[in-house]
């Protein structure tokens, strides 16, 4: 299918690209390890796009350091989806009502639709693509699979990120604690009890691993 995160759609002007590559050399090495994402031109804008104020930011995306030039008005979600092609982060309302775009920024959840990309300068962002490690699903993702937490799946990334942040703060939450912590993540399939089941199970399994000395 032609929908994979393909090569950047258009070239930037030569000047911009040279400047960009000159400053982004160090990040290039790291980011090139991320399959399917080429660093140069990843924030490129199509030819004919009106010039808008841009700012260079440094941030860590799913563990990889990035140096990026971004339009000042881009939201974090827009940068992640349209320009880094991390499309696991979904946009359900773009006004902070639904939580589908939830990401973890420096350990706290934010709605990436309501957070500017430039504000992420110097911070570390984790998206749903950053949960699996070395191709293995995170135990939380695995619990979502086993407990049928995604129905249509559109809210799932946001639910996972809120749940991940919850488990970091409260490793073995109760059902009520999960519902309270995830109240900002809507699910129109109303699969809330399945989602809570999955998070509680992931927490309980994590507690067992810790007690038995096994790490993950």
């Amino acid at each position: 299918m032609s929908t994979d995160p393909e090569k950047p759609t258009e070239q930037e002007s030569d000047v911009t690209r040279r400047e960009f590559l000159g400053t982004a050399g160090a990040a290039l090495v790291v980011a090139a390890a991320v399959p399917g994402v080429a660093v140069e031109g990843q924030t490129a804008r199509p030819a004919g796009t009106p010039s808008r104020p841009r700012t260079q930011i440094r941030l860590t995306v799913n563990g990889a350091q990035r140096r990026l030039e971004v339009d000042d008005h881009w939201t974090l979600a827009e940068m992640l989806r349209d320009h880094l092609r991390l499309t696991g982060t979904k946009l359900g309302c773009e006004r902070g009502e639904c939580g589908a775009c939830t990401v973890i920024l420096d350990g706290k959840t934010v709605y990436s639709c309501s957070y500017l990309a430039v504000w992420a300068d110097g911070k570390s962002v984790t998206t749903v693509e950053g949960l699996a490690k070395n191709g293995a699903l995170d135990p939380l993702q695995q619990a979502f699979v086993v407990h049928d937490a995604p129905q249509c799946g559109f809210c799932t990334s946001g639910q996972l990120m809120s749940a991940k942040a919850l488990l970091s703060a409260n490793p073995a939450p109760t059902v009520a604690e999960v519902h309270a912590a995830l109240a900002g993540n809507l699910c129109r399939c109303s699969n809330y009890s399945r989602i809570a089941e999955a998070v509680v199970a992931a927490g309980a399994a994590g507690a067992t691993r810790r007690t038995s000395g096994g790490g993950q």
Partner: peptide, 12 residues
């Protein structure tokens, strides 16, 4: 659960 599922708006 991994963000790989491609919905319409994920098509570029």
């Amino acid at each position: 659960v991994s963000g790989r599922a491609t919905y319409t708006r994920d098509v570029y």
